[in-house]
Simulated assay, not measured.
Amino acid sequence: MTAPAPAPPRAAPTARRISAQLRMELRLTLRRGESVLLTFLIPVLILVFFSLVDVLPTGTEDPVDFLLPGVLALAVISSAMTGPAIATGFERSTGVLKRLGLTPLSRRDLLVAKLGAVFVVELLQVVLLLAVGLALGWDPSGGLVVAALGMVVATVGFAGVGMVMAGTLPALTTLALANAVYLVLLFLGGVVVPLDELPGALQVVALALPSGALSEITHGALEHTGVPGVAWLVLLGWAVAAPLAAARLFRWE
């Protein structure tokens, strides 16, 4: 009698697959010098430079009080959209994602792992930026919980936008587009220029973007000027629509 064929290996539980991929995403992120520059150094440089050189129409007595909420929003853009979009785009073009697609790791598992890695990086960013802000004289008078909630919702939306780019476009196109969008949102996201200082048409566009909505929330929460309800609606809309689009359009190759 012939021996029965061995049973095929069982796939690891979903949580274990996601956890393993999340750890790999974090290692790869921290090894990429350009990713560290974009994610950590640029927001800090913007915060320090424009806090010490008072050249912006911030409308606050101390520039750091305006800049810190905006730079926190910029940190979300860089870590949730720009960096992951570029990295994932090149992983897709070099066949890394195609090989991952042959494993038990599903498209949903991959997207969840990448989003989890983004949240870990953002936590490090927030700690660093708050420490730098305190050193520059920022007064933490509350509102951090509301600002943090807005950043969490925005992260989901920006990650979805990044994965749509990375999962549908060639790598070099993703690189160019992600950096272009980053620069546009830098100026239309209330980071260095207050949204109410923009021309009327640009202000409407800015407030409809997730960057503008997030800026409204971080500024309103940390400066205690109140958070418009429409900002939450815009942000929640992006947080729902962008991930759904990514889950539908993302391709392994």
Rank of each mutant, 00 (worst) to 15 (best):
A3L: 13
A7N: 03
P8E: 13
A11I: 12
R16E: 15
L22M: 12
E25T: 10
E25I: 07
L30R: 05
G33N: 06
V36Q: 09
L38H: 06
I42L: 15
L45E: 07
V48N: 03
V48H: 08
T58G: 03
T60E: 15
P63L: 11
V64Q: 00
L67I: 09
G70I: 00
V76Y: 02
S78Q: 13
S79M: 09
G83F: 07
G83I: 13
P84R: 00
A87T: 14
T88M: 09
G95N: 04
G95S: 07
T103D: 09
P104G: 09
A113V: 08
A113L: 09
G116Y: 07
V121N: 04
L123P: 04
Q125P: 03
V126H: 03
L129C: 05
G133Q: 02
G137P: 01
D139E: 15
P140N: 09
S141N: 11
G142I: 09
A147Y: 05
T155P: 04
V156L: 11
F158T: 00
G160A: 12
G162S: 10
A166Y: 02
G167S: 05
T168E: 03
L169D: 02
A171K: 01
A171T: 08
L172S: 14
T173I: 13
L177F: 13
Y182T: 01
Y182A: 02
F187C: 07
G189H: 02
G190Y: 06
P194K: 09
P199D: 04
A201I: 14
V204T: 14
V205D: 05
L209S: 11
S215D: 09
L222P: 01
E223S: 14
H224L: 10
T225I: 09
P228L: 04
P228M: 06
L233M: 12
L236N: 00
W238A: 00
V240R: 04
A242I: 02
P243I: 13
A247D: 06
